[in-house]
Structure formats: C-alpha cells, structure tokens
Amino acid sequence: MHNPNRAAPDKDLVLLDLLDRALDKGVVLSGELVISVADVDLIYIGLKVLLTSVDTLQNMSTDAPLESLNTPPESQL
C-alpha cells in the first residue's frame, strides 16, 4: 500500500517513470490519437520539471518497500 511517509520526490520519480513509459513507449498503433497536440507541449514542460527534480534529488533511496512504489498517490485517485 501507499506509504504516506514517503518523500514527495519519490512520488515525482514514480510519475516520471510512468510518463516516460505510458507516453513514449508501449504498443503504438495507427489508431485514433485522443490526446491533442496542444497537450503535448504541456507534457514536455511537465516532464522537464520532473526530470530536473529527479536530477537534483539528494537522497534517492531504495529502502522503501518496492511494492509501494507503483501505488498511485491517493490524492490523485
């Protein structure tokens, strides 16, 4: 389960990894794309912010239980 004591940057890190995967990887089909091109710029800006925050993380730790890492932050669901 989500551990409320986890530091905020770790949530950013998990979100960054999700963005990095779900937006850029996976099966790409010639279907209908339902995210608008205007949103793409927002994704770029958001990712840039996240990457910067990861780059400056002083203490990325693997101590936390890994099971908790992929649990979406409760505030977002």
Partner: peptide, 28 residues
C-alpha cells in the same frame, strides 16, 4: 544513489508497430 521503480508492464520491450502519431518524447 539508486532509484528503482516497478514492476511495470514491459513498456520498453514491446514493438511499436506504427510510427509515432505525434512526436512526443522520442528524444529524451
């Protein structure tokens, strides 16, 4: 410093099959 996340579905190891519909993050 190490940061490990997952397990995720194998996003990075599947075939794309079609060109990227728009250029999203092809060049990190």
């Amino acid at each position: 410093s190490f940061a490990l996340t997952g397990p995720w579905a194998a996003y990075s190891f599947v075939q794309r099959l079609a060109p990227h519909p728009v250029s999203l993050i092809t060049n990190t």
